[in-house]
Structures are given as C-alpha cells and as structure tokens.
C-alpha cells in the first residue's frame, strides 16, 4: 500500500487529504476486502471529520458524483467494538494483524442496552418536576392489545401512552418499574374512551 499526504489547494481553499493506493503487496488484503490492486482511496480530513471515496479511476464515473460514490458509515456493533479496542493502544502498529471483536462486542451489549422503561415514558417523566399528580395504568384494549399510559390527575390529561400486541409480560415488568403510583379505577375511568380500553389489567 502506498499512502501519501497531500495539501490540495484552490481559490481560498486548503484541503489536506490522504491518498491510499493498493498495490501487488496488498493482494491478500484486497482478496479479503473484495478490492483490487490499483484501488485509490481519498480521505478528506477536516479536524475529526473525515470523508472518504474510492475508485480505480475518477474520470468518467458513469454519471455518478463523488458524493454518490461515498458510502455513509453505519452503526455497526463490529466496527464500534473495534473502534473501542483501538482506544487501548497508543500506537496502532502494536495492534495484531487480526482482531476478533466478538467478546468485546458482547460485553458492550451487556453494558449498554435498552433501559427497562421505554423512552416514550421516561422522556415524559423528565418533563415533570412534580410526579405526585401523575399516575400509571396498564390496560387491555378492545383489540386485546396491552397498553401502558400516564395520566395527569390534576388537569385530567392523558400524558402519554403506547400499546402493543407483543410481549405483554415484558410490558407488565416495565409497568411495575415506572416510578409512579398506580391509577385507581376511578382515576382511569375518564380515559376509557380515548385509550379504547376495555379493562385495567390490575
């Protein structure tokens, strides 16, 4: 591989880039990556923001713009685990030639997963400084789906709700952990129509 740092200049523009080029000595890597020798990669650097485009020839890009050729980086457990492993070395040349990220990825999943209580609920709770006038309820609607709702008993408002046809046990567990008092039958009654609920679960 060849790597070259170049300062590209234009009117009022200074654009530092790094160009990489695969050659015969990269055959094995090229085979793994589905690339070929001769592939050139332009990395455009601005602070920590880097954009990247690759091609064997850039003239006559078959009607494509460079932008169209660039592939956005997607959220991916493999690459994000690798990125965190990268943090562990001062010099990237100390890294092994092959890195298996599975165990790290699994550990990261264990440390960062979806909280028990859904955002749709916690975001609303964050909007209220006083939770004493809020109540939670869990119900079954006319379709037989389970719903969770938050109500404001002071102003008689429906704060938020969601219903789902799946995982009612998960929904009950979540409901139990919502840090609010449960609504009584009387408190829930006025919302019966709006929520299309048949009965309170408990």
């Amino acid at each position: 591989m060849r790597a070259k740092k170049i300062i590209v200049k234009d009117v009022m523009t200074v654009m530092p880039v790094i160009v990489l080029q695969f050659d015969e000595t990269d055959q094995e890597f090229c085979d793994q990556s589905g690339s070929g020798t001769g592939l050139r990669i332009i990395l455009k650097i601005y602070g920590q923001r880097v954009s990247c485009v690759a091609g064997y020839k850039f003239a006559g890009k078959r009607g494509k713009t460079l932008e169209g050729m660039a592939v956005p980086f997607d959220s991916d457990g493999t690459i994000s685990s690798f990125a965190e492993m990268l943090d562990q070395v001062q010099n990237i040349q100390h890294l092994p030639d092959e890195i298996n990220v599975e165990d790290t990825r699994m550990a990261l999943i264990d440390l960062r997963h979806r909280p028990l209580v859904k955002d749709i609920i916690t975001d609303e709770l964050d909007n209220f400084t006083d939770h004493s006038k809020l109540r939670k309820l869990i119900y079954k609607n006319w379709l037989g789906h389970h719903g969770t709702a938050l109500i404001d008993i002071e102003f008689g408002n429906l704060v938020t709700y969601y219903s789902t046809s799946r995982d009612w046990k998960e929904q009950v567990a979540e409901y139990l952990w919502i840090p609010l008092q449960a609504a009584t039958e009387e408190q829930a009654e006025p919302f019966k129509e709006e929520l299309e609920f048949k009965e309170l679960l408990f």
């Binding site: 965190e84 943090d87 562990q88 070395v89 040349q93 100390h94 092994p96 790290t104 990261l108 440390l111």
Partner: peptide
C-alpha cells in the same frame, strides 16, 4: 515486534467500557 495480544486488547477494552 510482538503485537499486543488479542486477549489483552479485549480485557482492556472491556475494562474501559466498564
């Protein structure tokens, strides 16, 4: 040059995340 071992890399990544 001896590269850092996979297991060391793993355990220090996990420790950092923890």
């Amino acid at each position: 040059a001896v590269p850092i071992k996979q297991v060391e890399l793993e355990s220090s990544s996990i420790e950092t995340a923890l």
